[in-house]
Computed example of a mutant assay.
Amino acid sequence: MGLDVGSVFMILPMYLVEIAEDHNRGTLGCLMGVFLSLGTLFAYLTGPYLSVQNFCLVCTVPMLIFLPLFSVWNPESPQYLAARNNPEQLKTCLSKLRNQPVEAVEKEIVSMTHMIQELNRNKGGIKELFSARNLRKGLIISVVLISLQQFSGINAVLSYMQTIFSATQSELSPEISSLVVAIIQVCVTLLTSVLVDRVGRKVLLLTSLTGSAISLIALATYFFLLDNHFNVSALSWLPVLSLVVFIISYNLGLASVPWAVIAEIFPPNVKSLALTLTTVVCFIGASIITLYFPSMVSFFGMASSFWIFGGV
């Protein structure tokens, strides 16, 4: 499972960017985040009402549907075909992707083939990724973006959503609260995929980071007051609102935009290697937060844990 999920996170952003056109590249790049949030919603809808065994069986259904659909309808990446010097398949592939006759995509084929030939003259190994200034800068941007994404605490919030809601002593049941948050998450990632090519990646990321920080600090403040025996009955709305605002803010940029940016800023000859390294960093961060959040809460307390995430 780990091998497969890791592969998807590396290959999918690259595939989406390579099949896209200039005007919809950001939108397609952000669709990965949309479907990740749909997966979370699916888990929250079914998880509380199924045994672990049945839940695992239900989770195989989307994958079993995906296999024949992808095999039949999805072509190979055009950049891959250009790199493999396969002009006939490239024509068929681009014609299918653009929904146009072969004659209409000839110009794009020539441009893409020329670009790939130029890049193939340059090596694309680990040495070049760290020694070339422009590639090194891209790698730093990628690692920082994905580290911000993971150490903002999103996996702690999603994995322990019901535990957090129980700790807030909110009037809404943890199951319902989690479901509401997951539905909002889907809606916002859809909005992000629409906005990303219109307002730009940087604006969405800065807005996302600001909203995430404010909401996490507000949630931490509520837990601080609760832990220190202040009367928080008048603030019972604050933790739910904070989590909702955090989910909205996070999914407005941090959830999807880093993957779209990472897939865009590297040339094809080092893209797969750069995405591999970034994916490794992503899952190291996700593992640390998911595994050690309960220990973090035990050692620092819920308030300090969310202050740390807000500080990040």
Score class of each variant (00 low, 15 high):
Gly211Lys: 07
Thr92Met: 05
Ser111Leu: 12
Leu16Ile: 02
Ile116Ser: 06
Leu204Glu: 08
Val232Glu: 02
Asn99Asp: 13
Glu88Ile: 10
Leu69Asn: 03
Thr221Cys: 09
Ile109Thr: 09
Val105Gln: 11
Ile248Cys: 14
Ile248Ser: 10
Thr92Gly: 02
Leu36Gly: 06
Ile284Lys: 02
Lys91Glu: 14
Gly125Asn: 10
Ile289Glu: 09
Val240Asp: 09
Thr189Ser: 12
Pro68Tyr: 04
Val199Trp: 01
Val5Pro: 06
Met1Ala: 13
Lys96Asp: 00
Pro75Arg: 09
Ala132Cys: 13
Val297His: 07
Ile217Arg: 06
Ile141Trp: 04
Met10Glu: 11
Ser295Gly: 10
Thr290Pro: 01
Leu205Thr: 04
Gly33Asp: 00
Ile126Ala: 08
Arg136Lys: 11
Tyr222Val: 06
Leu291Met: 15
Pro68Ile: 06
Gly124Ile: 04
Pro101Thr: 03
Gly2Thr: 08
Val110His: 14
Asp22Pro: 13
Leu129Val: 06
Leu254His: 10
Pro174Cys: 12
Arg198Asn: 09
Met296Cys: 15
Gly47Ala: 04
Gln149Thr: 11
Lys123Tyr: 03
Met112Thr: 03
Ile265Gln: 04
Thr276Asn: 13
Ser177Gln: 08
Gly311Lys: 05
Gly153Trp: 06
Asn86Arg: 15
Gly211Ala: 05
Glu76Phe: 05
Ile164Ala: 08
His114Glu: 15
Ile141Cys: 10
Leu94Met: 15
Asn155His: 03
Tyr250Gln: 12
Phe42Ile: 04
Glu106Arg: 14
Phe55His: 12
Leu158Phe: 10
Arg98Phe: 00
Gly2Asp: 05
Met302Thr: 14
Ile184Trp: 00
Pro68Arg: 11
Leu195Ser: 06
Leu216Asn: 12
Glu21Thr: 15
Thr189Arg: 09
Ala218Cys: 11
Phe230Ala: 11
Leu16Thr: 01
Val203Met: 12
Cys59Gly: 12
Thr60Val: 07
Asn231Phe: 00
Gln89Asn: 15
Ile217Lys: 10
Ser7Met: 12
Asn155Glu: 04
Pro75Met: 04
Leu145Thr: 07
Leu97His: 07
Ile65Cys: 15
Gln100Tyr: 00
Val244Leu: 15
Cys93His: 02
Ser142Phe: 05
Arg133Asn: 06
Val181Ser: 10
Ser77Asp: 04
Asn269Thr: 02
Val8Tyr: 02
Ile146Trp: 05
His23Gln: 12
Leu16Pro: 05
Val52Ile: 07
Leu216Phe: 02
Lys137Thr: 10
Val312Ser: 12
Met14Phe: 00
Phe246Tyr: 15
Glu88Lys: 15
Ile176Phe: 13
Leu90Gly: 10
Val240Trp: 00
Pro87Phe: 03
Gly29Trp: 02
Leu209Gly: 14
Glu171Trp: 07
Leu216Gly: 08
Ile248Asp: 02
Trp259Gln: 12
Gly39Val: 09
Phe55Thr: 02
Pro13Cys: 11
Ser159Gln: 14
Val196Asn: 09
Val157Glu: 01
Val110Tyr: 07
